[in-house]
Simulated assay, not measured.
Amino acid sequence: MAGKVHHFFAGDHTAKGFYPLYAFNYQGLERVFILQGLPYTGKSSLMEKLADEWKGEGFDIEVIHSSSDNQAIDGVIIQQLKLGIYGGDTPLYVFNDENLEYINMDTTVNFDSLNGKKDTIIQLKEKIKNAYQEAQNSFKAGLEIHDDLEDIYINQMNFTKANQLTTQLIHQLFNNRKAASNDAVVKRRFFGASTPQGVVDYIPNLTEDLDKRYFIKGRAGTGKSTILKQIAAAGESLGFDVEIYHCGFDPLSLDMVIVRELGFCVFDSTDPHEYFPDREGDEIVDVYAEAVTPGTDEKYADEIDNLTRGYKSYMKEGVAYLKEAKQHDDELQSIYKDAVDNSVTDKIFEKLHLEVGKKASSLE
C-alpha cells in the first residue's frame, strides 16, 4: 500500500524577509543528504522522483515545497527511517557533520559550455535578487497597513472573554491528558506561502487524517495567533509533539497548530486561507462573536474596507514580483538545461535510492 504524503513549506518570502524554518524539520534524523550546488542541476526533480518511489514502497513522506516555485521541492523526509534529503539554497544548521552526507550536484554540469553566457547569467541572477527584494518590500508595506487594521479590532476586544475562550478550548483539546514521554518535539513550518502562482496552502492535505479540526474565525487583531501560541505551549508542556505553522505573511504570528497524537488541529480559517466545516469532527471557534464589541464591523466599515484593500494591493504587488523572479529563473533554467549531464543525475538517484533501501532493510 502506498504511503501518505504531507506537503508544506519551510521557507517563505514574507514581510520580515525570507524566513527559513528548515532546521526545525530535519531535527532528530539520523542521516541527511545535502544536495549542494546550483538549483538548475535537477535537485528538485531528483527529490520528486525519489519521493514517488518511496511513497510507492509504502513509506510516509514529508515533501517540503519551495515558495519561490511551489512546483519545485526543497526537501524530502522519511520519518520512519529517520532519513532526509535537503536541496534548498538556505544553509541547514542542524547536525554534527557525522549526520550529514554532502552530494555535489554541480558535478552534473559542464561549465565550459556556459562560458559564452556568463554575462547573461550574472544579469539574470541580479534581476532575480532584486525581484525578491521588491516582493518582500511590498509584503512589508502591506503588513504596516494590516497593523492599522488590527488596531481597530484590538481596541474593541474584551480580553477577559478572549482568555476564557482560550482556556476552555485548551481544556477541550487536551482534557488533562499527558504524553507518555516528556520529550516533546516541536516542528515549525508554513502550511501556505505567497508564490509566483499566487497564495498556495496545503491545509486540506495536512489535516485530512485528523479526527478534529477547529476553524478559528475572527478578524485581524482578534487574538487568533495568541490563541494558537497558547495551545502550542500547552501541548509542548504536556509532552506532546507539536507541529506549529507560522503565518506566511507575518511569520511572527501563527496560523495553525497540529497535535497528531491526539488527532486534532486548530487553524486560522480566514482569508486568504478560509475554509468551512465539511465533515464530521469539524467545529468553528468564532473569536469575533465571542470577544469583540458587537457592531464593530458596521461602525468602522469604511475604514476597514480602505485598509483591507490597501494591504491586499501590496500583497498582490508582492506576488507579481515573485512571478517576475520566476520568469527570470526559468530563463536561467533554460540556459543550464543543455549543460547538465542527466546520466550523472541518474547515478546520484540510484545511490540515494540504494541508501534508502539499505536503511529500510536494517529496520526489518
Score class of each variant (00 low, 15 high):
55 K>T: 09
88 G>D: 11
69 D>N: 13
60 D>C: 00
79 Q>C: 08
80 Q>C: 09
55 K>L: 15
90 T>W: 05
60 D>L: 10
83 L>Q: 07
85 I>S: 09
86 Y>Q: 12
55 K>N: 11
70 N>T: 04
62 E>A: 09
80 Q>P: 01
69 D>C: 00
91 P>N: 13
63 V>F: 02
54 W>A: 15
55 K>E: 15
73 I>K: 02
60 D>R: 06
73 I>F: 00
79 Q>A: 15
68 S>N: 02
75 G>D: 10
54 W>F: 07
72 A>E: 11
68 S>A: 12
88 G>P: 05
90 T>A: 12
60 D>S: 10
75 G>L: 14
84 G>F: 00
83 L>F: 13
90 T>N: 04
67 S>H: 15
90 T>P: 00
58 G>S: 03
59 F>V: 09
71 Q>E: 13
86 Y>M: 03
76 V>S: 13
82 K>W: 02
71 Q>I: 08
63 V>G: 03
88 G>W: 04
64 I>S: 04
66 S>R: 02
80 Q>S: 02
62 E>I: 05
87 G>F: 07
83 L>E: 05
56 G>P: 02
68 S>K: 14
57 E>D: 11
59 F>K: 08
63 V>K: 01
57 E>K: 15
86 Y>D: 14
60 D>F: 04
70 N>G: 09
81 L>V: 06
